[in-house]
């Protein structure tokens, strides 16, 4: 090869579509004059055409089926792992939720049978029923768990009932309408009966606590 390496380099750059307009015109002009380079360039182009015509092959018969048969059948655990990996937030939320339910239901189940009442002296306890006697005003919030509440007097605050209900004073008293209007609650009345509501109550309080800061 007598010709300049520089031009051969330019031929390759040209074949790679990686040549500046300036170099390309230089190469063109040179090819017009230099027979050796013309031959070289022609051979390179021909080589590429020949490479492209090389024997094409097909995969053996049943190739896809063989691959599919050899794929590892996913174990259930792998499937779960993949799923977990893909949804980390969902997994975290689920774990959080499970733990929360666990802890709440354990407090919920603690002493299910025990009657728990807030400590106002005015409240009268009769078996499972807590009575606010007629003509009495109970100061502050009243809290009753695992028992019913009968309000004949007045509660000067909120009333919260867990696992119990507010008894209708009419059905309790023979006299019927005698005291019906006397019993009152000067605040919110909230009855929580089911486990779900119990959780809801806690969640609500939790957020209330959060936002009150």
């Amino acid at each position: 090869m007598s010709c300049n390496e520089k031009y051969i380099k330019r031929m390759h750059d040209y074949l790679d579509g990686d040549i500046s307009a300036e170099d390309e015109s230089l190469l063109r002009r040179h090819l017009e004059d230099c027979e050796d380079c013309q031959k070289h360039f022609h051979e390179l182009n021909r080589t590429i055409t020949l490479i492209r015509s090389a024997e094409r092959m097909e995969a053996p018969v049943g190739f896809t089926e063989n691959v599919m048969r050899k794929l590892p059948t996913e174990k259930k655990s792998v499937k779960y792992k993949r799923w977990f990996k893909r949804h980390p937030i969902l997994v975290a939320a689920a774990i959080f939720f499970l733990l929360m339910i666990g802890s709440l239901s354990s407090t919920f189940n603690q002493g299910t049978d025990q009657l728990v009442v807030s400590t106002q002296e005015e409240l009268v306890i009769d078996g499972d029923t807590v009575i606010v006697p007629a003509g009495v005003t109970v100061p502050g919030d009243v809290y009753v768990k695992n028992g019913d509440l009968l309000v004949l007097g007045t509660v000067d605050g909120n009333v919260t009932l867990f696992n119990g209900e507010l008894l209708d004073s009419d059905s309790q008293l023979d006299g019927g309408n005698l005291m019906a209007s006397a019993g009152g609650v000067n605040g919110d009345l909230e009855t929580v009966d089911q486990t779900f509501e119990w959780i809801w109550y806690h969640v609500k309080n939790f957020f209330k606590g959060l936002f009150s800061f």
Partner: peptide
């Protein structure tokens, strides 16, 4: 889709 290309 790719079997022939990859095999080749």
């Amino acid at each position: 889709f790719y079997q022939d290309k990859i095999y080749q």
